[in-house]
Amino acid sequence: SEEEIREAFRVFDKDGNGYISAADLRHVMTNLGEKLTDEEVDEMIREADIDGDGQVNYEDFVQMMTA
């Protein structure tokens, strides 16, 4: 549901600035027990970053979650 997606976005957007940065993503993945290299984190950001601004905004996140 849209509310679940919004809630998930809030979990990833640690600093609440409306964007998921590589640092935000790394933090959440580490908490989930996933040890990722910087390259892996950057690749995840690139794949999710639809508009190419280097971070994942809510619209990018929705597209990723509903793809």
Rank of each mutant, 00 (worst) to 15 (best):
G54A: 05
R26Q: 12
E39K: 12
V56R: 01
F9Y: 01
A23K: 10
A67D: 08
F61E: 00
L36F: 15
A22V: 15
N17Q: 08
A67V: 10
G33M: 14
D51M: 10
S1T: 14
D53A: 07
T37Q: 04
V62Q: 02
G33Q: 08
S21Q: 05
N17V: 05
D42A: 11
D15C: 08
T66Y: 06
E43L: 15
L32A: 03
F61H: 00
S21K: 09
E7M: 09
M64F: 08
L36Y: 15
G18F: 02
N31R: 10
E3G: 07
K35D: 06
T66V: 11
V11G: 04
L32G: 02
N31M: 14
H27F: 13
V28P: 01
F61A: 03
I5A: 03
D24M: 04
T30L: 15
V62M: 09
V62S: 02
I50L: 09
M64E: 02
R6E: 02
T37V: 03
K14I: 09
R26G: 05
A48Q: 06
F61Y: 06
D60H: 14
K14A: 06
N57R: 15
Y58P: 00
I20T: 01
Y58F: 09
E47V: 14
S21P: 06
E47A: 15
A8V: 04
H27D: 10
T30S: 12
Q63C: 07
D49C: 12
T30R: 14
S21G: 04
E34W: 15
A48P: 01
M29L: 15
D51P: 05
L36Q: 02
E39D: 10
L36R: 13
Y58L: 07
I5S: 01
Y19V: 04
D13C: 02
D38A: 13
Q63I: 09
M64R: 14
E59D: 04
M65E: 00
V41Y: 09
N31Q: 14
E4A: 12
K35G: 13
D15Y: 09
D42K: 06
L32V: 05
F61T: 01
M65T: 02
L32F: 12
E59S: 06
R26T: 08
G54S: 05
I20C: 04
Y58S: 01
G33N: 14
E34I: 11
F12N: 01
L32E: 01
L25Y: 02
E4L: 09
R10D: 02
V41N: 02
A48D: 02
F9A: 01
V41K: 04
E2V: 13
E39W: 12
V28D: 00
A48L: 12
M65I: 11
T66I: 14
Y58T: 02
F61I: 15
E2L: 14
E47R: 15
M64G: 03
H27C: 10
I45P: 00
E47L: 15
V56L: 09
T66N: 08
E7H: 10
V56Q: 00
E4D: 11
E2Q: 14
I20G: 01
F12M: 06
I5L: 15
E59K: 07
D60L: 14
G54H: 05
S1P: 07
E7P: 01
A67F: 01
G52C: 10
G16T: 03
G18L: 02
I50Q: 09
E4F: 11
L36P: 04
H27P: 03
V41A: 03
M44V: 04
T66S: 09
A67C: 10
G52E: 13
S1A: 08
F9N: 00
E2R: 13
E34A: 15
V28N: 00
I50F: 10
A48V: 12
K14R: 12
E39N: 09
G16M: 07
E47W: 15
Y58C: 02
I45T: 03
E3I: 07
I45Q: 02
E3V: 07
E4M: 15
D13L: 02
T66A: 11
E39C: 11
I5W: 15
E47H: 15
R10P: 00
E2S: 12
H27A: 12
G54D: 06
A67H: 10
D38M: 14
R10C: 04
E59A: 08
A23G: 08
D49W: 08
M29C: 04
N57C: 13
D13Q: 01
D38P: 14
N17I: 06
T30F: 11
V28Y: 03
Q55W: 14
R6D: 01
M29Q: 01
R26M: 10
Q55T: 06
M64I: 12
E3H: 12
I45F: 11
S21L: 09
D24I: 06
D53T: 13
H27N: 10
D49K: 15
V41F: 12
E34G: 15
I50R: 12
D51W: 13
G18S: 02
E40S: 04
D24F: 03
R46K: 12
F9P: 00
K35V: 09
N17H: 07
G52I: 11
H27R: 08
I5R: 02
E40K: 11
R26F: 09
G33T: 11
V56S: 01
I50E: 04
D13M: 02
A48N: 06
E3T: 10
Q55V: 05
G52N: 09
N31T: 12
V62N: 01
G54I: 03
L25H: 00
A8Q: 07
D38I: 12
E3D: 12
D15G: 07
G16P: 00
E47G: 15
M65D: 01
Y58E: 05
M29G: 00
R6W: 06
A22L: 15
H27I: 09
E59I: 07
Q63D: 05
E47D: 13
G54Y: 05
E47Q: 15
E47T: 15
A48G: 06
I20Q: 01
F12V: 04
A67K: 13
T66W: 10
L32K: 03
F12H: 06
I20W: 01
N31L: 15
D13F: 02
D60N: 13
A22I: 15
I20H: 00
D51R: 13
E2M: 14
L36C: 07
A8K: 09
D42Y: 09
L36D: 01
A23E: 12
V41H: 04
V11W: 08
D49Y: 14
E2I: 15
M29T: 02
D38E: 13
K14H: 13
L36K: 06
V11H: 10
K35E: 07
E40V: 09
T30I: 12
M64Y: 08
D13E: 02
G54L: 04
R10A: 09
V56C: 04
A23R: 08
I5N: 01
G16K: 07
D53N: 14
E59H: 09
D13R: 00
G18N: 03
F9L: 08
I5Q: 02
G33L: 13
F12E: 01
N57P: 10
D51S: 13
M65H: 03
I20A: 01
D53Y: 09
Q55P: 04
H27L: 12
G18C: 03
V11N: 07
A48C: 14
M44C: 06
R46Q: 07
T66K: 11
D42W: 12
Y19C: 05
V28M: 03
D15P: 03
E34P: 14
D13V: 02
D60P: 15
T66F: 14
T37H: 04
G18D: 01
E7I: 05
V11Q: 14
E39G: 07
M44D: 00
E43A: 15
E59P: 03
I5F: 09
I50N: 05
E40Y: 05
E47S: 15
T30E: 12
V11C: 08
D49M: 14
A23P: 05
E47N: 15
A23H: 13
E4H: 10
D38H: 12
M65F: 06
N31V: 12
M64K: 14
V41Q: 03
K35S: 11
S1G: 06
R10K: 12
N57D: 03
M29A: 03
T37P: 03
D24E: 08
S21H: 07
N31H: 14
A48E: 03
S1Y: 13
G52T: 12
R10M: 08
R26Y: 11
E4R: 13
G33R: 14
V28I: 11
Q63N: 08
E7T: 08
Q63G: 07
M29E: 00
E39A: 12
A23N: 09
R10T: 05
A22M: 13
F9K: 00
R6K: 05
R6P: 00
V62C: 03
L32Q: 03
D60I: 15
Y19H: 05
G52F: 09
I50P: 09
G54M: 05
L36S: 03
Q55C: 10
N57M: 11
A8Y: 07
A22S: 08
G54C: 11
I50M: 09
R46H: 04
D24V: 04
S1M: 08
R6C: 05
S21C: 08
L36W: 15
D15A: 09
M65S: 02
A8W: 10
N57Q: 10
E47K: 15
K14T: 11
D42S: 09
V62Y: 07
N31I: 14
M64L: 11
D15M: 10
V28G: 02
L25N: 00
D60M: 15
G52L: 11
M64C: 08
E4I: 13
E2T: 09
G33C: 15
G52V: 11
D60F: 15
F12G: 00
M44I: 06
V56D: 00
D60Q: 15
Q55G: 06
M44H: 02
V56G: 00
G52K: 10
I45Y: 05
Q55S: 08
